[in-house]
Amino acid sequence: MRSTSRHILGSVKEMIQACIQCGTCTGSCPNAFAMDHTPRHLWQMVLNDRTRDVLTSKTFILCSSCYYCTLRCPRGLPLTDVMGSLTRLARTENPTGFKKSHLFYGQFLQSIRRHGRVNESELMTLFFLEMKNPLLPLQYAGLGLKFLQKNKISLPFVEKEGSHGLEKIFEKVREMENQA
């Protein structure tokens, strides 16, 4: 178990090996209050090969990529990238645990790819469909109504696909991912 788990976290671990647990990242993280493990914890868990704990953590899902930690890290570690790597890793290693976020992000990106921006109604509809949980929309109903009242949700309308030129970016990403 140990050797495999080490192998799983190996590449991530290399990225943060120089961490000195100074806590700057957690102090600067705007989302740390909601995380089950603060960034500082998370790195220490990675360094200590606590693979299971790491891959079941929701910390990296809550990362909003503000890059504050990366900016402030005295070791110059690419912490935001590490969050991303952990997200990808968790998705492959623990698909069920991250199904929800995986599907959400998938639909989020698809929506952008289609419209050049997020169409909230469409995103949520497709997300609910994919989650195949009839109770799920009820959980979001209250929030949705609030957003609606404040005009924060655009109504579904159809935009011409591909007209926004984002396709090139998606192509490039796929290319890079394939290379990786």
Binding site: C22, G23, T24, S28, R72
Partner: peptide
């Protein structure tokens, strides 16, 4: 704990330190 940055309370002029 290392302090990531400082901010100032504009009303009182106190310095705000957020740390772990």
């Amino acid at each position: 704990c290392r302090i990531h940055s400082l901010s100032q309370d504009n009303l009182t002029g106190d310095l705000v330190v957020r740390y772990v």
